[in-house]
Design a protein around this nucleic acid. Sequence first.
RNA 1: GGGGCAUUAGCUCAGUCGGUAGAGCAUCUGCCUUUUAAGCAGAGGGUCGAAGGUUCGAGUCCUUCAUGCCUCACCA
Length: 488
Amino acid sequence: MSEHNLFDADTLQLLDEVREEGYDPYPPKYFPTHQAAAILSQFSDLENTSVTIAGRVITKRLHGKAGFAHLLSGGTKIQIYFRKDNLDEDTFHLVKKRVNVGDIIGITGDVFKTHTGEITVSVSACTLLSKALSPLPEKFHGIENVEVRYRQRYLDLIMNEDVRKTFQMRSAIVRSIRETLHHEGYMEVETPTLQDIYGGALAKPFTTHHNALDQDFYLRIAPELYLKRLIIGGFDKVFEIGKAYRNEGISVNHNPEFTLMELYEAYGNYETMMEISEKLIMGIRDSVLQKDTIEYRGKTINLSVPFRKMRLADAFEEFAHVDIVKLQDEQYAKEYLKKEKIHIDKSLCWANIVDEILKKKVEPHLSNPTFLYEYPLPLSPLAKKTSLQSQWVERFQLIMGSLEVGNAFTELNDPVDQQDRFLAQNEAKQHGDEEAHSFDRSYIEALKFGLPPTGGLGFGIDRIVMILTGSESIRDVLLFPQLRRREP
RNA sequence: GGGGCAUUAGCUCAGUCGGUAGAGCAUCUGCCUUUUAAGCAGAGGGUCGAAGGUUCGAGUCCUUCAUGCCUCACCA
């Protein structure tokens, strides 16, 4: 074996032997008549009838002139049984000697129940469909090395049923969200992930380059500003489910690329966004979970409507025992932070202080779905103020299992105010805030044509899936999480 | 980026005080016609993550590096 030859002599010889015996290790086609899951669920109809199924051999138990194996077929395990009496010599030899754990085979046979009551297919014909040249991990412990699980996720999926379940649930959750939104009259759209100016969130972007235009582009940190352009264009209810990219740390709650659902509704506001948030979560509860409570990180989460609603200021009062307005006073804020042993590296502006206390002191108390609403203006350059001179914006975050899973506001549609906010962000950027929002000229040009009063909502799909599947790490809900390049 | 822990057969893991590299599963050879972590008997399989160092002698001790996990920092 070498860098460009992954096969040793023994492996190639094995293939030769299989071919010499007349079996094609990689035949061109095979058509099963049944799914394993259907055979298990419709046993009474199928008992003693012949079926053709295909799948990967994951266990094999030989008993001399008979044997059992389990096939993993369409994600479902089903047992097969073979005995010398029922098979011609070639087929028996194939099943007994040449079919190994890991191989993909197709079999035909009658459905029956064994003495122990397991639904089983009794083999009358067998075809090798794909010879495995690498052995599967050990059957009992499966695969526990997390690096292998992430880098070779296919092995994880073959070996670990609960991992398959998690990703099936993820698919069902996303499907439920789509169905709820279609039912509510939203149109699904796609907007650019390669953007000239990144915006819609406060985060550091990935940068790339387009050769023909000789121009740098950014991978989007959020789809927000394009979706709002569509509201201006007259699509009154739109949503997008797609990846966003943020060039920041990796942790159990963060991956550089993650899936965001954003929706916008003309003539809505942050309160109507609360209603649609509840509908989305309830839709998942009823169609996917089919239960009212879930356990997450040692706490019980109760999924029932209406969700708790708390003004952010009241939550600060109740959980952090601090007056959020007085935190604008630097001396007061410093004393509080010192007392609570909270350390902030960034500049000690109101926005950063509030954000930090929110994460450290408030969110840990919020397991049940809770809308925290009315946020400080400096944290929210795209949200509408509660009143003309207010320092507050009509915004909420949906907290579940102590994680921020949703974020919504009444969209800022006053183009002059938006320009002022961008200018303030520009100032912050010049003072070293790398995450400050860029001044987006073409977005203000769009707003000048009139954005109707609009509500917008974003859901962190990965975090919602984490909570609802009981996954400790975001990596457990991403099929291929980001890892460092492996050095040869 | 800081700190801690880990890396031994395809997989899961032992390896004592520094003294010839081990088990189970998987693979191969026998036996076994209702098993399911099947069983019994045997065989093959290793650059102990990499590179240096200490030592008569290193899987074991030291240094550096790589990768992973945890944690802190960063992070809507």
